[in-house]
């Protein structure tokens, strides 16, 4: 499992602060993209798609395979990366669509627990299929980009981080355009409001739900490629923790709310990075930075306790 070991804190200085902010931003951009996949599906059919983290993992693995395949071909590295990203996005879109069609659609009217358990089942299946294909060991990405390190005020960041953050921003802008300016986006928003009324208005609900899965998976694939190129390693179990945290980010921002998922992702990335940077100092070195993973869950529990509709979610009265 990818642990963010490189965020080890050395000392409590402003350098650390700046450094952790940069790292947190990178991490947050990835969480935000994955969180969008959770929030879109939840917003429309109220399902926690546990298998979404695995879709992201498959995205990383596919990109890895494509990159390794072309690595010796003499193609320019950026082109190889682009092809890897593209193939991975397409594969994940098909996977997302298939997941909805085969596993979830037949359970549309089943009791709530049923699709949730199916989602867990699908997540196990995908993990083990990935293990059979790509093996049970960590796989290392061949370095494609000449990593350049920039220094600002004692903190350093790489061109890969810049690329990740800007690509994430671009993709999110695209999503906002899609949801607010296109017919399918409008249909999605209408369905999220009230599926029954939307269907009366001629919206094809099945198509909208399939689209939510497809778009969410595409975003997941992009995130998967980012994770792969940032950490340069991948593992068949990496999707689980990533997915769990991204879901936390979605809840943090207010589940079902797109802008909330983006903000929640960034916020969670920052909380984690800062938490990892300062946990040693906060606890008198009792707890070290390998406790980074607990922040997400502590945040989750606190949010659910005090503001279950999320930081940006509307408080909806429960309908009796």
């Amino acid at each position: 499992m990818v642990r963010h070991q490189r965020l080890v804190a050395e000392s409590l200085t402003m350098d650390t602060l700046l450094q952790q902010l940069i790292n947190g931003l990178t991490l947050g951009a990835v969480y935000a993209l994955v969180a969008l996949g959770y929030t879109m599906v939840y917003g429309i059919i109220g399902l926690i798609n546990f298998a979404h983290g695995e879709v992201v993992m498959i995205g990383t693995m596919v990109a890895f395979t494509v990159i390794v395949f072309f690595a010796g071909s003499g193609m320019p590295p950026l082109l190889i990366l682009g092809v890897g990203l593209l193939v991975s996005v397409v594969v994940c879109m098909v996977l997302g669509w298939a997941l909805e069609r085969v596993a979830y659609r037949p359970l549309r009217h089943a009791p709530r627990l049923t699709p949730l358990i199916t989602a867990i089942g699908m997540s196990i299946v995908l993990q083990n299929v990935a293990m059979l294909i790509w093996g049970r060991n960590y796989i290392t990405f061949p370095p494609m980009i000449n990593k350049q390190i920039y220094e600002v005020g004692g903190a350093s960041f790489t061109n890969v981080q810049v690329a990740i953050v800007s690509l994430a921003a671009l993709v999110m802008l695209g999503l906002i355009y899609l949801v607010h300016r296109t017919r399918i986006g409008m249909a999605m928003r209408a369905t999220a409001q009230n599926p029954h009324v939307a269907s009366l208005m001629g919206v094809d609900i099945n198509r909208v739900i399939a689209m939510a899965f497809i778009i969410g998976s595409a975003l997941g694939a992009v995130a998967g490629c980012m994770v792969g190129s940032y950490y340069e390693i991948a593992h068949y179990q990496m999707g689980f923790m990533l997915g769990l945290k991204a879901f936390t980010a979605a809840v943090l921002g207010g589940i079902g709310n797109l802008a909330g998922a983006m903000a929640g992702g960034l916020l969670l990335g920052l909380i984690e990075a800062l938490g990892a940077g300062y946990i040693g100092d906060l606890t008198g070195n009792f707890l070290g930075s390998h406790y980074q993973d607990i922040f997400a869950f502590i945040v989750l529990i606190i949010v659910l306790m005090f503001r279950p509709s999320g930081l940006f979610g509307e408080r909806t009265g429960d309908r009796a």
Partner: peptide
């Protein structure tokens, strides 16, 4: 109900990390 699922999942991980 589904929030409980995710919180218990997270708790399981916290315990394991500790």
């Amino acid at each position: 109900g589904d929030y409980l699922a995710i919180v218990t999942l997270g708790f399981g991980e916290i315990v394991r990390i500790f």
